[in-house]
Computed example of a mutant assay.
Amino acid sequence: MHDFDQQNAEALKRLWFLGDVHGEFRHLGTALKTAAADSRLPSWLIFLGDIEIFDRSFKDIMVPVRKAFPSVQVAFIHGNHDADDYDHWEALHDCGDAVALHGHVVSLDGILVAGLGGNFLGRVWAPPATPTFLNKTKAMERGPYGWRDGQRPSPRFHGAVYPDDVSHLAGLNADILITHEAPGCHHHGWEALSQLARDMGVIRSFHGHTHDDLSENYALMRDQLGFDARAVNLCDIKNGLGELVPGLPPGMESRS
């Protein structure tokens, strides 16, 4: 980890990982203005899910950011609340040139970032239990039974974590893994995500969802985990080194 951070410090500082925003973006504008004043704008804004928009597209919401800071690019994974209904899901994925990282490994300024969005949904898969559905296609088809009377599948099937997505990513390599759910080092986390990070050989992981930051506790388990796990709190921002980004509204800078 030390060598990775030293060799890639400048690129990592330009990757900003955003915790759950739940439709709130003012803190992002504040942080970007502060960064611009100090000539340290990020190259990428990477949302960790629960963006939670429905009345406007993600593309439209990002217009002011892209106009004011045209060099800044956007990437994201979805969270559980991004699949509360079809309006949420469609608004998020009407995203323009923002990069949907779910199920992919993408080079962001030379750093390989993998994304796994969504949450573990009991009726789909709650490891280590046997999954009901291996992939979203099967869930949306509702197995052999179909949907009666023109009903639509539950939108929450869009936001679930599926075994096929995990196994696909497990066969790839990355430097950083972002997930919405927490890995097993969190008391509400999932060992399946810890194993995924190890399978991919990542140096560091970031997650949202839990609305807390137990990164200091995670550090005590780093040797056991095999990677550096970081949480990003509600409306917090961390760079690729795992450092809190300064310039957030009063009361947010002190979050550990």
Rank of each mutant, 00 (worst) to 15 (best):
H93W: 02
H211C: 01
K136Y: 00
L101H: 12
D175F: 03
G150H: 00
Q73C: 10
N233R: 08
S205H: 02
G146S: 05
E181L: 12
V106E: 15
V63R: 06
G226A: 12
D20M: 04
D85C: 09
S205G: 02
G143D: 13
C95N: 15
G184R: 10
D109N: 15
C235P: 03
L18M: 08
A75L: 06
E181R: 07
P183T: 08
S43K: 09
T179A: 06
H209Y: 08
F54L: 05
A231D: 14
I111D: 13
T137S: 11
H27C: 11
D85H: 08
S205C: 04
E141S: 12
M221V: 01
S254G: 12
G117A: 09
R26H: 02
E52P: 00
V105L: 05
E90I: 02
A129Q: 13
A36Q: 06
T30S: 15
L18C: 10
F227Y: 15
D199E: 13
I61Q: 09
T137P: 04
M62W: 03
A35Y: 00
V63C: 00
S43D: 14
G110C: 07
G247N: 07
D55W: 11
E52N: 11
W147Y: 10
F25A: 02
I176R: 02
K138M: 09
V202D: 08
S254P: 01
A129K: 12
W125D: 14
R148C: 01
H78G: 05
L134C: 00
D165N: 13
L92S: 01
S194F: 00
V74P: 00
K138T: 08
A31I: 01
A139M: 12
Q7H: 11
A9C: 07
L48I: 13
L48G: 13
A68W: 02
D82I: 03
W89H: 04
L32R: 00
W16K: 04
R26Y: 01
F54E: 14
F4G: 04
L15Y: 05
A229D: 04
C185F: 12
S256E: 12
R204D: 00
V166D: 08
R142K: 11
H186F: 07
R198I: 09
L112A: 15
D228Y: 07
A31G: 03
R56D: 09
Q151E: 09
A35F: 01
L116P: 10
V124G: 09
W44N: 03
A231P: 12
L234W: 15
S43Q: 09
